[in-house]
Amino acid sequence: MTELSAPAAGGDTSPLGPALVEEATKKSGLVWVRGEGPERALWHLWHEGAMYLIGDGGDEQPLPGLTDGGTAEVTVRSKDKGGRLIAWAASVREVEPRSELWETVAPELKGKRLNAVDSDGVLDRWARDCRLLCLTPVSSTTDLPDGSLAAAPADSPVTTRRPAPAALPRLLLGRKRKRG
């Protein structure tokens, strides 16, 4: 595990911080990541002290606001209850396609990629079209926020469902009207 630097203000000063970051992130299949843009739910891989993400190409997850040399905040959720366990700050760096690190991490990520359309050619497609990012922890916090972390929904042309027409249950269930 990479050593975490001094925690941010209000951060975790416990020696369990690095261990908690690693264990929680390893076990969570989904994390929330915020770079320069909005926070996004992303699938990931924990490998040798860092978290790896693949995306920004075709059918892969978008990685908005995550840039090489930038920073990000990662919020890890509990796998069973979905609640917030820990948040940690990370430095972001892009891994060059087909580099030694890429060749080590990409096949492991492939194993975690659910429902890939082209599982045989996914590594070639990732090397050609996607970015592999390494997020290395630099500080952590277990302090829970005072208020809600709920965000307003993103703008969308999708509308809320309207009430079902009164005749729909009869049509679906095949009930016929009684004739008098």
Rank of each mutant, 00 (worst) to 15 (best):
N115G: 01
N115H: 08
N115A: 05
N115Q: 02
A116N: 06
V117A: 06
V117Q: 02
V117S: 09
V117C: 01
V117N: 00
D118A: 11
D118K: 06
D118R: 09
D118H: 13
S119F: 05
S119Q: 11
S119C: 04
S119L: 08
G121Y: 02
G121V: 04
V122N: 01
L123G: 04
L123E: 03
L123I: 09
D124P: 01
R125W: 07
R125Q: 08
W126V: 03
W126D: 09
A127C: 06
D129Y: 04
D129V: 04
C130S: 15
C130G: 06
C130D: 15
C130P: 02
R131L: 06
L132Q: 09
L132P: 06
L132N: 10
L133C: 07
C134H: 04
C134T: 09
C134N: 09
L135V: 10
T136S: 15
T136Q: 14
P137M: 14
P137G: 13
S139L: 07
S139C: 14
S139N: 12
S140N: 11
T141W: 06
T142P: 04
D143E: 15
D143H: 12
D143C: 13
D143Y: 10
L144S: 07
P145W: 11
G147I: 02
G147F: 10
S148R: 11
A150S: 10
A151H: 09
P153G: 01
A154G: 02
A154C: 01
D155A: 13
D155W: 10
D155M: 05
D155G: 08
D155V: 09
S156P: 04
S156H: 07
P157E: 02
P157V: 00
P157M: 03
V158T: 09
V158A: 14
T159V: 12
R161H: 10
R162I: 09
R162C: 06
R162T: 11
R162E: 15
P163K: 12
A164R: 11
A164W: 11
P165H: 03
P165A: 10
P165V: 05
P165F: 02
A166P: 01
A166T: 12
A167F: 01
A167T: 04
P169E: 02
R170T: 08
R170K: 12
R170H: 12
L171M: 15
L172N: 05
L172G: 07
L173D: 02
L173V: 03
G174A: 03
G174V: 03
G174E: 03
K176P: 00
R177M: 00
K178T: 14
K178D: 11
R179K: 13
R179H: 06
R179M: 07
